[in-house]
Design a protein around this nucleic acid. Structure first.
Lengths: 247, 247
DNA sequence: CGAGGGTTTGAAGTGCATCAAATAGTGTGG
DNA sequence: CCACACTATTTGATGCACTTCAAACCCTCG
């Protein structure tokens, strides 16, 4: 019994520290974090699992602990518009607190993941009751909005090659500037969709980007000799003072 | 002296009722509205006037009373990414309350307008102090975010013709469904930029849209025989349950 | 009237999508 | 461990959408 309690407590402690590291729960008092952790449900999922569909009643919001989740909308003609793919530390589905209490997009697991879900009603409760919570929420929303308007800018002004370069920059560890090697976090097909292009276009654009910036790609493994060469090639069309690897 | 006071009072009353009609100030107590109105400054501007530039210290936020304001970013290669053009009743620049206290975009008048500016610090004060204010702010931000993610979707999946059709739908008065006539609110050049296309493309796409949907254009005057014909042509690629004329 | 910006039109080029097919990679059952 | 099925990715050929560059047209306003 003691062991059981201990396990529960460990899981709870884990959730609490995860929550604390997100912008939304930053600086929140311990008792609030505990309250959320107590109402949490953890979820392991495999590629292909659907978390929720656009229009579903929004009873939970999610925190990614591990893996990748695709956020998208289906269009009337049967295609799909992917507008974000999120990973560890990101909270999503929480924006349905406002409006019609229904999700405004769908979410699907694209790389095996652990998600923690919390009742939307609990968030709603604290948004009304706790000043800090409300402030954090606004901060997070402002941040996301800024990112999104950059996204619009990118779709408007960048070529396929440049959008890929920009994504690579955002995948790079921020410290290093040379001889970086990393793995593409999910299918090339999916990256293409995320960047608003077809798989074939992605493949060809990536090949050209290789010539233009000296990067190497083998399977999902990417090596980047010089960050500078990518930014030179990629960021010329972007607005001033924007750092891709800063998002 | 009495007349003078009366004029001041009228102006203040006007500001208060304008504020009350915005989502951000909806349901706010009278004394708060008065406080904002007291600190307000009104501004008449002509086409071409710049309200602020990206990076400027964000000391004011704005409410449009009349006219049109372009929100944009300049890119390193000297072009411009327009991500919104707003008009009466819209508040902008208020998102700089968060983050680095600097505007994240630039704003310029594109059709003669009246704007009312309020100190950002006052908003900040009430966001921390007043529950309703914080709630309204979040509501407004959620709304805007939803709109923006639709925008991304549109850029991804719609053709030039369809994007124009979509814009027209949003300009139509919501009640009517047939024989609508309206004026384009600002330069065609600017509409093109707003929709992420070149002026030449806009001109040609508009001509084709005329053939496809039966609309007529003379100068800035547009007549639309049937809304239905536009939605049939325009909205097929959009995600389900989205009403263009509902934004 | 004439200058200048906004708008349209034409010709040619570029980028991305589409359709089709080949190739590589992965997981399955034998 | 291999053959097979299936998916992901690449490659080729072709077409369409949008851009670019250039020039004409139109409208407004001094």
């Amino acid at each position: 019994m003691l062991a059981h309690t201990q396990i529960l407590s460990d899981a709870r402690q884990n959730i609490i520290s995860l929550l604390r590291s997100t912008p939304l729960f930053k600086n929140m008092p311990e008792n609030v974090l505990v309250h959320f952790a107590d109402k949490a449900q953890t979820n392991s999922m495999q590629k292909g699992n659907v978390l929720f569909l656009q229009g579903d009643s929004a009873e939970w919001f999610y925190l990614v602990e591990r893996g990748w989740i695709k956020l998208f909308r289906d269009t009337l003609d049967g295609t799909q518009a992917v507008f974000d793919i999120v990973n560890a530390g990101v909270i999503f589905g929480e924006d349905s607190v406002f409006g019609q209490q229904a999700y405004t997009y769908s979410a699907e697991c694209v790389e095996d993941c652990n998600c923690i879900m919390f009742p939307t009603s609990l968030l709603q409760f604290y948004l009304e009751k706790n000043q800090q919570m409300a402030f954090n929420m606004m901060q997070a929303m402002a941040q996301r909005q800024n990112t999104q308007s950059r996204e619009i800018e990118h779709l408007n002004v960048q070529t396929a090659q440049q959008r890929i370069g920009c994504l690579l920059l955002r995948l790079c560890p921020t410290q290093q500037t040379e001889n970086i090697s990393l793995n593409l976090p999910y299918d090339k097909n999916l990256i293409a969709a995320r960047l608003g292009m077809k798989p074939e276009t992605f493949s060809r654009a990536l090949a050209k980007l290789r010539e233009n910036t000296g990067i190497e790609i083998t399977g999902s493994k990417v090596t980047i000799p010089s960050i500078q060469r990518i930014t030179d090639f990629t960021c010329s069309h972007c607005s001033q003072s924007f750092e891709c690897n800063n998002i």
